[in-house]
Amino acid sequence: MLTRRIIPCLDVKDGRVVKGVKFLNLRDAGDPVDVAEIYDREGADEITFLDITASHENRNIIIDVVYRTAERVFMPLTVGGGIRTLDDIRNLLKAGADKVSVNTAAVKDPEFVKRASERFGSQCIVVAIDAKKIQKTGDRRQKAEKKENLNSELRTPNSELLRWEVFTHGGRNPTGLDAVEWSQRMEEYGAGEILLTSMDRDGTKEGYDIELTKNISETVGIPVIASGGAGNLQHLYEGFMEGKADAVLAASIFHYREYTIKEAKEFLRGKGVNVRL
């Protein structure tokens, strides 16, 4: 049976891991390749590099990081951040990435996802969605009521239907797009996977936005990775069992050695989640 995946994510800026990763016995905790190698050894199911390099000149540094990672790490590698063109994708895949995740470029030009998946295959195109919760009220009520019967469990006690809006630029720019509809559209356009981050939960350690995750995971037929808010192992469990996520992404709980990948998997297996140990 297919197992549920645990994916540590590293923020990389100018080729260095952002925020100290607290590993003992690590030659260089700032080197993404060294850190990736540790996670590989610990049995992570994939690894994701999120490139947050600001300046355009330094964009090629991530290519070099990927290039070096492919020499030492033999598990799937996803790279996201700043991907704008088909050439960006080709260069990353050539260097040794297996998947790329696109966010802003997809919002700006949805056809980009279509072109990318036709050119490189759906399996390597991940669409990252940063979503923030908003409430539907007033003139939206009519539409909301129509949906009521379909998704009654999503209604809050005061009868307002939950809705999530897609944001870009790390949650700064609203797009007006409905996250659930957007995920469906991206699936139609050939996305192979959705990386779903709750901007409300990101960095809070309060757990994934379960309603958001469940809503999207049950809407699309492609795998969904839950992201944003993981603070303990119970949160991973909830992401899988209640959020119906196919994979969970986490950063700080692994980077700061609060838990190892193995501990996380043992915990999940103990609770009946099918993981690879």
Binding site: R4, R5, G192, E193, I222
Partner: peptide, 23 residues
Amino acid sequence: SFNTPNSELQTPNFKVPHMGWNS
């Protein structure tokens, strides 16, 4: 092919692509 044509809202049990670790 894991279509469940009779109920749109039914959770697809199996996502496509088949992506991840399997034995």
